[in-house]
């Protein structure tokens, strides 16, 4: 469905991703974990075209899309929720949802968005920028339902969300995976990421150090300890 092959990418003169291959297929739940500054955001931005692939390839539905523009990739069904700022602050919540829908699903956009996040109903006519931090994140995530994607990429899914809502979001993501949509999440809380995913990539200093099922990763304690010591504590305690 969506694939990055031996991708090299970065900013200006610095190279961040050094030959990363990653794949998300239909109905698959994937998560990417790694310490701060490992290049997770860079990876997602490269997948959706915000950063050019310097060498290697980006393949969507079996077709080479290495040189495609961001909006063309988005039209092909790739939905990227960026880290921390996925809304247009000056527009109302309603206008945000309608824009997210693109030209086809405009009519039902608000209805679908609210069905995923009923908390926003009261705030439909509010400027998105004046929503609370968590409400903004919910609005950003509503794009997943509103835009009919075939693959969803979420950077820092639970940023600024209350624990209850985080639970809800992962339930919700689980549901859309079962509907046949591929989902890739980047997540600081490794516990959530591992419980959710059927395939895990561990990224470190711009290179993959692990790719496989989460339970196998659990068995490779040494590796885990090396890269994510702090996270391990957390995953044990819960």
């Amino acid at each position: 469905m969506l694939e990055l092959r031996e991708a090299v990418a970065g900013y200006g003169d610095s190279t961040v991703l050094r030959g990363v291959s990653i794949e998300v297929s239909a109905g698959q739940a994937v998560s990417v974990v790694g310490p701060n500054g490992a290049g997770k955001t860079t990876l997602i931005r490269t997948i959706c075209g915000l950063l050019p692939v310097r060498s290697g390839a980006r393949i969507i539905d079996g077709v080479d899309a290495t040189a495609q523009s961001v909006h063309a990739i988005a039209r092909a069904g790739v939905c990227h929720i960026p880290e921390g700022r996925g809304v247009f602050p000056g527009l109302s919540v309603r206008d945000n949802m309608m824009l997210f829908a693109g030209s086809d699903g405009k009519r039902t956009a608000v209805e679908r968005g609210l069905s995923a996040f009923p908390q926003l109903t009261k705030h439909l006519n509010q400027r998105a920028g004046s929503l609370s931090g968590g409400q903004q994140q919910m609005l950003a995530l509503s794009r997943v339902v509103v835009s009919n994607p075939s693959v969803v990429l979420i950077d820092e899914a639970s940023l600024g969300l209350a624990p209850v809502i985080v639970d809800e979001i992962y339930d919700f993501l689980g549901r859309i995976v079962s509907e046949g949509i591929g989902v890739l999440v980047v997540e600081q809380y490794v516990t959530h990421a591992l419980r959710f995913a059927s395939h895990v990539y561990v990224l470190q200093r711009g290179a993959l150090v692990y790719s496989g099922a989460p339970n196998e990763l659990g068995s490779q304690e040494q590796l885990f300890e090396r890269y994510l010591e702090g996270d391990l504590e957390q995953s044990r305690s819960t």
């Binding site: 959706c48 915000l50 523009s69 961001v70 909006h71 988005a74 039209r75 939905c79 990227h80 960026p82 700022r85 996925g86 809304v87 247009f88 602050p89 000056g90 527009l91 206008d95 824009l99 997210f100 693109g102 794009r143 835009s147």
Partner: peptide, 14 residues
Amino acid sequence: RAIVEDPELLSLTG
């Protein structure tokens, strides 16, 4: 109205 606030996000919506 949206593009002035975040051109990148707009292109992400297609």
